[in-house]
Amino acid sequence: MMEELIDVLLLAALLLVALQVIGSRGLVAAIMTFGAFSLVCAGLFVTLDAVDVAFTEAAVGAGVATLLMLAALQRCGGESEAAPRVHWGALVVVLGVGGLLVWGTLDLPPVGEADNPAHQHVAPRYLEQSGVEIGIPNVVTSVLASYRGFDTLGEVVVIFTAGLGVWLLLSSRRREEGE
């Protein structure tokens, strides 16, 4: 029950922080609040038993992404922006998509039940066999490194691709500014 209470409170807090990010005046404030959003996310991941994800979210979301945004903002000269106005088109899209999703989750099995279909088919093998087949206690690491190792390879390639893209973009910057 305690666990659930924390979950409920953290989720509510997260929504407040998210609205704060969107409504914030000034980009520095928005970025810093976004960092806080990622940290609360990481906290939620801990209460939902996803410790590895929490650690990564804190390091990558709250850490790396926030720093990158600040660095980019600095190079863009921290310009002032127009005051937020209500964007009716966006509101319609969001309400439509959100409404569909709420309808779509109505018959999803309740959060947290051990006999949900998601926990039945593929996952038990990881929990029951990985200790023997892989030999390390952290099941997430086992799946990441072996059963679904190819995804992890793809993930590395994604980072490389982004790095290459950033380099291609920023290495020619001086030339352009000289024009």
Binding site: L108, A118, V122
Partner: peptide, 10 residues
């Protein structure tokens, strides 16, 4: 994600 929640497979 919704498909996974329904079926448990990818």
């Amino acid at each position: 994600g919704l498909l996974y929640a329904l079926t448990g497979t990818l």
